[in-house]
């Protein structure tokens, strides 16, 4: 009885979280939804007499894999939400049809099969004295070759990730002298202005006011300014808004100079 209740609650939670993963536009929400699905699956493993897998699911998936996803999301840019323009006409519609058809097909196939009562793994567990010893016995005897191959695979993956993420330095590392020169050439050798005496708020995306009361666009982070402009979160004060817009334009220019000319498609 307890298992039935757990199953139905977690089934509803995991299916709705999976739907959220597919349909929410922001990538961070997708990651959170995937975390919910993984946690509910971990509980379902625990319910099905697989405590070791439940622990591994939480440690490896929700711990390591989700953190990796979130790190990469932050590197690539949190605001990289999907465009809603279809490149292939009718792709969404036919993908939905295919998905529903696939789900119905699988469900019917499972429903048609005559499945008896589960044998339960308690016997197999007790023979070796617990779930973990039983799994260990299998890994280190019958499946030891697969285990060794898995270790080779992990080393290869780690090396591959290092090779892929490595970037050769194309220009020599700037020395302290170069940095100092560049700072004086830039025309603003001092540190960037902080919120200032005349600040009216301490929000990080609001430009500071200089001692004479004028607005300094130097004080606002360009990336944050770009986000503000893209999301339309500009302050009412026209002077502040203009400073933010200017910083955002600088950021765009900077991005364009990094990316190089992008071909038209």
């Amino acid at each position: 009885m307890g298992e039935t209740i757990t199953f139905w609650v977690l089934a509803v939670v995991s299916v709705s979280a999976a739907l959220g993963l597919v349909f929410s536009r922001k990538a961070v929400y997708c990651a959170l939804m995937l975390g919910v699905v993984m946690l509910s699956l971990a509980v379902l493993y625990a319910v099905q007499d697989a405590p070791f897998l439940a622990a591994v699911q939480i440690i490896v998936y929700t711990g390591a894999v989700m953190m990796l996803f979130l790190f990469v999301l932050m590197m690539v840019g949190v605001d990289s939400s999907d465009s809603l323009v279809e490149t292939i006409r009718g792709q969404r519609f036919w993908a939905m049809i295919a998905g529903i058809g696939f789900a119905v097909l699988l469900a019917l196939a499972v429903g048609q099969a005559a499945i008896g009562d589960p044998a339960g793994v308690t016997g197999a567990n007790q023979r070796a004295g617990g779930n973990v010893p039983a799994l260990a016995e299998l890994i280190f005897t019958r499946h030891v070759f697969a285990f060794e191959v898995a270790s080779a695979l992990l080393i290869t993956a780690a090396l591959g990730a290092m090779v892929l993420a490595h970037r050769e330095r194309t220009r020599p590392r700037p020395t302290q002298k170069d940095l100092a020169k560049a700072r004086f050439v830039s025309g603003y050798p001092g540190p960037l202005p902080g919120p200032g005496t005349y600040a009216r708020n301490n929000a990080i995306d609001m430009p500071a006011r200089l001692p004479d009361g004028s607005v300094s666009e130097l004080s606002v982070n360009r990336v944050i300014a770009r986000h503000d402009v893209e999301d339309g979160r500009l302050p009412d004060d026209p002077e502040l808004a203009e400073a933010i817009r200017q910083a955002a334009a600088e950021e765009e220019e900077h991005n364009a100079s990094i990316a190089g000319p992008k071909e038209d498609r």
Binding site: F7, V15, A18, V22, A27, Q48, A103, A113
Partner: peptide, 27 residues
Amino acid sequence: MTTHYLVLSALLFAIGAVGVLVRRNAI
């Protein structure tokens, strides 16, 4: 109960497949 679990697994698999087909953000 086995059937329930298998149907849940099939549903999640199909939803994942739809996501792969529909979404454009590689992550």
